[in-house]
Amino acid sequence: MRKSIPLRICLVSGIVMIIQFFIPHRYSQTVYNYTLDWLIVSGIFAIVIGLHSNFHLHITRIVRKRKGWGYNVVTMAATLSMAFIGIAFGIGADSLFMKIYRNIEVPMDATMFSLLGFFMASAAFRAFRAKTKEATVLLIVALIIMIGRVPLGYFLWHRFPELVEWIMMYPNMAAQRGIGLGIGLGMAAMELKIILGIERGWLGGAGD
């Protein structure tokens, strides 16, 4: 019962939507539109769970005074004040909320990712090796692309960008498509198995 009802809900809603795909009739469209609305409304409650687990994590650390709990205070304070500022004073273009977003969240987020560029430079020197024939081809193509995709490449040889476009459009495209078809088949197979209740991994984590 604890597993059979969700499996049936999944089966029925999945099959209904697949059949709906092939039926253009008005009634079928109504079913479709209602389903879309229902998905949005029911999905909102999942956010509550996400919030709870976040708050829970930080509060436990603060209450138990775990090592570095001061940082958890920073997180909690930031979350609560940001949410309060947004809900109480609005989120318009010139609001304090958007100012904080633009000047605190955006730059930090971008900087976090920019660290990767530095790590890439260090890995370029210390790790990327042409150990095998395959790796050699890979590196050579990479070097061609790296020169051809910057203005310097065009400056060195004006057909460099064309060469890069050709590599991207044919050999690269072919491999991407081959890999993509494989992934598409794999995904579709997984989806089919979930609808039919053969794959039940998603039921996990809530007891039997």
Partner: peptide, 15 residues
């Protein structure tokens, strides 16, 4: 790092 996590979460709540 922790400030970023907090601000992003609070942003999401208001939105």
């Amino acid at each position: 790092e922790y400030l970023l996590i907090g601000v992003a979460l609070g942003f999401g709540i208001a939105i």
